[in-house]
Simulated assay, not measured.
Amino acid sequence: MSPPLPSAVAALLDQQEGDRVLLVDDVPDNLSLLHDALDEHGYTVLAATSGEAALARAAQGQPDIVLLDAMMPGMDGFEVARRLKANPATAHIPIVFMTGLTETEHLVAALQAGGVDYVTKPLDPRAVLARMQVHLQGARQARQTRQALDAFGYASIAVRASSGRLLWQTPLARELLQLYFGTVAPQTPAPVLAWLRRCLAEMDDGTPPQEPQRLSAELGARRLSFRLHHCIGGDDTPGPNGSSAAASGDWLIVMREVSDAAVIRSLGLAFSLTAREAEVLYWVVKGKINRDIGDILGASPATVKKHLERIHAKLGVETRTAAASMALTRVREMHPQWEV
């Protein structure tokens, strides 16, 4: 798989802090019982007695897990869960329902609303703690990963391969996905999801594992690359078409943006071109025709043609192919890592 994150990031991932639990129940006795048990075991407990308060506490406190009463007056637990999962800031938080309803349709409703598990009332604190631990390990790892990536400026996202849902993203990733694709969480851009599933299919075909091919998206002279880093846990249900656990897991994707502004400046200096001539030559090297270059630069094809004629004269060549070849050779001398 991909090379590890830098050691400074890895060190931050190893840091531990008390897990935060949001406890939601409209019955004070239930809150008191569980609060004492959770506090005794070292958890930081946030409490709410209504659906509205639960949504506010979750957004502000960012708990690692939510223990949610299913039946409450006003906004019930099912609606709370749906709203938590619809909010990109809280969609990643696992929800364990607490319910006295044991009919199959109610349990199914809890899972469909976004719950990962349930415990039945009357509550046994030992059973609640045991069920929590099943889901906290993945939540803890995801939280620490987000903290590390945010701290070190990585643009990263986590995507659930089976559903295509974008589970969480760093602030920089949010900006880049909106800029390049016009999407917001929990929607994963279609090209990114298709690329992820291709990578997982290749990993599952029985051939020796190798570095998955990276995805690139371009925006003018800027390029955003996507690297599949590793599986961070997730869904136990089969993936699309009965595929393996890898194809249904949650995957960390690291993004990196590169601007070719330096390459364009280098072309201008190397061949004594104006800024606009350097841009035109850059896009010629990228294989664009005059009409496409005009669309990119906001100019007419005729204007691009005039720029290209001056470029040919300055480079001492007669064709765009010769100009592109000369420019590519010079760029690779100055920027060995640059890719067309």
Rank of each mutant, 00 (worst) to 15 (best):
H135C: 10
Q137G: 09
Q137D: 14
G138K: 08
G138V: 15
A139G: 01
R140I: 12
Q141P: 00
A142T: 14
R143S: 12
R143P: 00
Q144W: 13
T145K: 00
R146Q: 15
Q147S: 05
Q147C: 01
A148M: 00
A148G: 15
A148K: 00
L149K: 03
L149T: 07
L149S: 11
D150Q: 14
A151M: 02
A151R: 10
G153R: 07
G153K: 06
Y154V: 05
Y154P: 04
A155Y: 07
A155K: 04
A155W: 06
I157D: 01
V159Y: 04
V159Q: 07
R160N: 15
R160T: 15
A161W: 04
A161V: 04
A161P: 03
S162G: 06
S162P: 00
G164W: 03
G164T: 02
L166A: 05
L166T: 03
Q169V: 10
T170A: 10
P171G: 13
L172S: 12
A173N: 12
A173E: 13
E175Q: 14
E175H: 08
E175F: 01
L176V: 02
L177P: 01
L177K: 02
L177Y: 05
Q178V: 00
Q178T: 07
L179A: 14
L179F: 05
L179P: 00
Y180L: 11
F181C: 03
G182D: 03
T183R: 08
A185D: 08
A185Y: 05
P186V: 00
P186N: 08
P186Q: 07
Q187K: 03
Q187C: 05
T188D: 06
T188M: 09
P189E: 08
P189H: 01
P189Y: 04
P191R: 01
P191S: 09
L193H: 02
L193R: 01
L193I: 02
L193T: 00
W195N: 01
W195H: 11
R197F: 13
R198L: 14
C199I: 12
C199R: 07
L200E: 04
L200H: 07
L200I: 08
A201C: 10
A201T: 12
M203E: 14
M203T: 02
G206E: 04
G206W: 10
T207W: 02
P208L: 12
P208Q: 09
Q210S: 13
Q210Y: 10
E211I: 07
E211H: 08
E211V: 12
Q213P: 08
R214E: 14
L215Y: 06
E218N: 08
E218Y: 09
E218G: 11
L219A: 13
G220M: 14
A221M: 12
A221Y: 05
A221K: 04
R222Q: 13
R223H: 07
L224T: 05
S225E: 13
F226S: 08
F226Y: 09
H229W: 11
H229T: 02
H230F: 06
H230I: 02
H230S: 11
C231K: 08
C231R: 11
I232H: 00
I232L: 15
G233R: 04
D235Q: 09
D236V: 10
T237M: 13
G239L: 07
G239H: 10
G239V: 10
P240K: 05
N241S: 14
N241G: 04
G242H: 08
G242I: 13
A245S: 13
A245E: 13
A246L: 15
G249L: 05
G249V: 04
D250G: 02
L252S: 02
I253Q: 01
I253H: 00
V254L: 08
M255Y: 09
R256D: 15
E257D: 12
